[in-house]
Structures are given as C-alpha cells and as structure tokens.
Amino acid sequence: MSMHRAKRGPIIAIAVLIGFVLFFYSPWELSSSLIPGQRGEVNELYGLLRLVTGDQPGNDHVLNDPQLDPTETVDWSVYAAGEPDVNWWKEAKRINKVHPIIVFSKTYCPYSKRAKKLLESYDITPPPKVIEVDVRDDGIVIKNLLSRLTGHSTFPNIIVQGKSIGGSDNLAGLHSSKELRNLIEKAGAKARKNGPEETD
C-alpha cells in the first residue's frame, strides 16, 4: 500500500506541475480576441466600445476600410484610431466606470425603442450610452463585429460592464424578475428610488 503511494507521489507532482504550466503559460490561453494589458487581458469588445463611445469627430468612419473583415480579429491599432500607446486595461476600466451600460440600438427598431424606454424608466446615473448603429456609416461592420464578439446578432444589444446581456426580451425578463435594479447597481450605476419594478 505504501509502495503504491510512493509511486503515485512523483506522478501527482508531475501532473500538478503540467497543470500549472498549462494554466499560466499555455499558448492557447490568449484568445485571438484578447490583448494582454499591463494588468491583465482585455477583450476585443473594449476596442469597439472605446471607438463608438469616444467623442472624437470622425470615429463613425474608422471601420469603413474595405480591407477590414469584421468576422476576423481586428487589429487593435484600428480601435486606437491613430492614438499611439493606448493602455487597453486602463481604457476598459475607464469605459466600465464612465459607460457601465451601453446600448447598441437602431432608431427605427421597435425592440430597441422598448429597451431604451425601459432603461429610461429607471433614471440611471450615469445614463446608458446609446449607439444608434443605423445612423453610422460603419453600421454593418459594427453589427458583424457585435455578432462575433458577443454572440448576439440582433438589436438592441445591451452591454453591461463589457458583457452582452442580450436584447430587449432579456432586459424585460430581468425587469420582470426584479433583477434589473441589482444588475444596474452591480455595474456601478445608480437607479432612482422606487423604480418601476417596485410599482408594477
């Protein structure tokens, strides 16, 4: 019995060592949509979020390069839009704070309208940042990027702290189950007291 344990000791130690190496140093650990930052990895979605929430004029033309394939990983320099040395980890953190809730919408879409109306009823601070994709000349590229990066291909596409929670039905479901206020507050935003979920 002790002989078997003695033989198993080195095998377990080797297995633990291999597991450690694979966990921390595996070549496939970095997804093609992640970039290493100074303090961790940042999902490519933050590149898109930075681009569409920025106030720089002309940002709605950046993704119009006919060579750009939104179904493939986009070079981070495209999202940087000419700004050198972007610290993407800091950018992701800033976006989460300044725009904890981002709504990709279409102006004419009834589901987008319904989602925006529901969010407005919570009187959120800071208010959700709404990106009207159909009024941008790179709207088709954004749609394809969102499909690849979030797995959600229709509008609205609601992003909370850099993650898609889905569309209008998902939002309505969170509201009905009284979870939406909690989600808003966990995202670092504030909703007014006695919001619509308490009065329904």
Rank of each mutant, 00 (worst) to 15 (best):
K143T: 15
K178M: 07
G166I: 02
G37Q: 01
K97R: 11
W88K: 04
I35S: 01
E179V: 02
V160Y: 07
N170M: 02
K193Y: 02
V78D: 08
P126Y: 07
Y122I: 10
D200Q: 08
S164P: 06
W76M: 06
K163W: 02
P156I: 08
S32Q: 14
D65S: 15
I142A: 05
K113C: 09
K90L: 11
P27Y: 03
L30S: 12
N144V: 05
R39D: 13
V21F: 10
D85W: 06
P128I: 13
I142G: 06
K129L: 13
N96C: 00
G195K: 01
R181T: 02
D137C: 09
K117C: 07
L30G: 05
W89K: 01
V135A: 10
R5A: 14
G167L: 08
L51N: 02
P66A: 05
L34K: 14
E198W: 03
L22S: 10
V42W: 05
P126R: 08
G173F: 05
L68Y: 07
N87S: 13
S32P: 00
P100M: 07
L118C: 15
L51V: 04
S26Q: 14
G82S: 13
K143L: 14
I101T: 00
D138K: 12
L51S: 06
N170P: 00
G139A: 05
E120S: 15
V133A: 14
G37H: 02
P127L: 11
Q56V: 15
R94V: 01
I12F: 10
L68Q: 06
S2T: 14
S26Y: 08
D85Y: 06
L171Y: 00
K106T: 12
Y111C: 09
L30V: 05
M1A: 14
G151F: 09
V52S: 00
I158F: 00
S77K: 15
N87A: 11
I18M: 15
Q67S: 15
P27C: 02
E132S: 15
K193R: 07
N59K: 13
S153N: 13
S77Y: 09
A92W: 01
G40N: 00
N87T: 10
Y46F: 08
K178Y: 12
D169H: 02
L146M: 05
W88R: 01
K190S: 08
G166M: 06
P70V: 03
R8W: 14
L22P: 03
E197Y: 07
K163M: 09
I184R: 02
V160S: 08
L48Q: 01
L51F: 03
P36F: 08
G195H: 07
A189I: 01
S177P: 00
P156E: 10
P27G: 12
D137G: 04
L63D: 03
A172S: 11
P156D: 11
T150D: 05
K93W: 04
I11T: 13
R114G: 13
N157K: 11
K117Q: 13
D138F: 07
D134F: 04
V42M: 00
P128Q: 14
S153Q: 11
G9V: 10
Y122P: 07
K190I: 04
G188D: 03
G47N: 04
K93Q: 11
K129I: 10
S32L: 01
Y79L: 12
V130G: 11
A6H: 11
D85E: 15
G58C: 06
W89R: 09
V74D: 12
H175G: 05
E44A: 00
I12Q: 12
D134G: 04
S26V: 09
S112T: 09
R136W: 11
